[in-house]
Design a protein around this nucleic acid. Structure first.
Lengths: 208, 208
DNA sequence: AGCTTTCGCTACGAGTCGTAGCGTAATGGC
DNA sequence: GCCATTACGCTACGACTCGTAGCGAAAGCT
């Protein structure tokens, strides 16, 4: 799931699974204390109680390691079934905001996204282990809302995919920008206002 | 405006303004070719035709230099007066997307934002030289739309400021996420759909 | 002139990188 | 139980970047 296992051999000493979890935890701790730029693989190895060479045997570099370490933070994301689309959105956005509020997520996420601009393999790794898992929530929430009749059904599947992508970029982008650029907390009040605008638009009912 | 001038002395040899522009241009060129992580100040100095020590005399480090280099890209941002709120939004968002499509902006922007998580001075520098200039466009566009009657006027100035912040995070966040995370172009079709959702909401008229 | 500040250049210690080499530990197959 | 195979811990290494110090020369102002 995490380190790209290079076809696990049937013979020989198996890789320590405990080392994997220790390394990823140490990476997050180092992200909190040092941030991205001052994080060194040697330091992570020391924290995790493993040799530096072990790190290089499992991950190609700092980028891949941090992606895996941060990806685990998003494992807890779940789509609540609150009964209404608005409540579903507010619930999942609040979860997302809570993860982004953690310093290890802030320090790691933007840095690897920046690196992915020049590394397609890294971008693919981010997409498969972080982004797609988030996007699935949008897909499920949309289907649920359409079943409830809260959203009009899409006939064209290609058009539907475009809409899901748009919504996803709007939701994730707004929370990320609020948290990391504006540096303000995406708290319950903000999430409520955001959901109102997303559902009814600027010209719609007053924003609460 | 760019390098934090340390109280320009009236006496002595003045700093070469040509060196400043050459350094910032060289920084952008290095961002395109090398990306953030492999960009070194020694390389920038060589490209700009100045000594490495000159760089360190003007900027505290890589972060500050890249912020100033990227900030210049946003100088061209202007709010068009298209007659309707929707057209105004589409116009300015397309401009913003065009800037974010440039590799020097992609490589530099996210990296400095990531660094700013652990450096309040850097965050303030980004805010004053990049973010606030963008936010002013939202403010102007909103006032213009309210004068036209396209948006309801806000009585409470504090509430109005909150709404402007929300809209700004939604617009900038969506474009940034689309461009840098989803890695898809924010072209005219996407901007049109985005504007529709922003104005009328998901439950409003069909997206297109 | 004389003063002040900047500039280009060189050199330096400190720190990190990623790898190679070695002996040892932990599996599965015979 | 023995052996082949792989992972592990450890040390050491060259290469590179960092940020700074020191110097003489250049470019302004009064």
């Amino acid at each position: 799931m995490q380190s790209r296992t290079p076809a696990p051999r049937a013979t020989g000493r198996p890789r320590s699974a405990a080392a994997d979890t220790a390394i990823l935890a140490a990476t997050r701790a180092a992200l909190v204390e040092l941030g991205w730029s001052k994080l060194t693989l040697g330091d992570v190895a020391t924290r995790a109680g493993v040799a530096k060479t072990t790190l290089y045997r499992r991950w190609a570099g700092k980028n891949e390691l941090v992606v895996d370490a941060v990806a685990e933070l998003f494992d807890e994301l779940e789509l609540p079934d609150s009964g209404t689309l608005a409540a579903d959105i507010e619930g999942v956005v609040l979860q997302f905001a809570a993860i982004l509020a953690r310093p290890e997520a802030q320090n790691g996420l933007m840095a690897v996204v920046a690196e992915s601009c020049r590394d397609d393999a890294l971008r693919e790794r981010i997409r498969s282990s972080i982004v797609d898992r988030q996007k699935r929530l949008v897909l499920e929430g949309r289907e649920r809302a359409q079943a409830r009749g809260e959203l009009p059904p899409e006939a064209d599947p290609l058009e539907a995919a475009r809409t899901v992508d748009l919504i996803f970029d709007m939701v994730a982008g707004a929370v990320v920008h609020r948290t990391l650029v504006s540096a303000e907390p995406a708290d319950a009040a903000w999430v409520h206002g955001f959901t109102q605008v997303l559902l009814t638009g600027l010209t719609g009912p007053a924003v609460e």
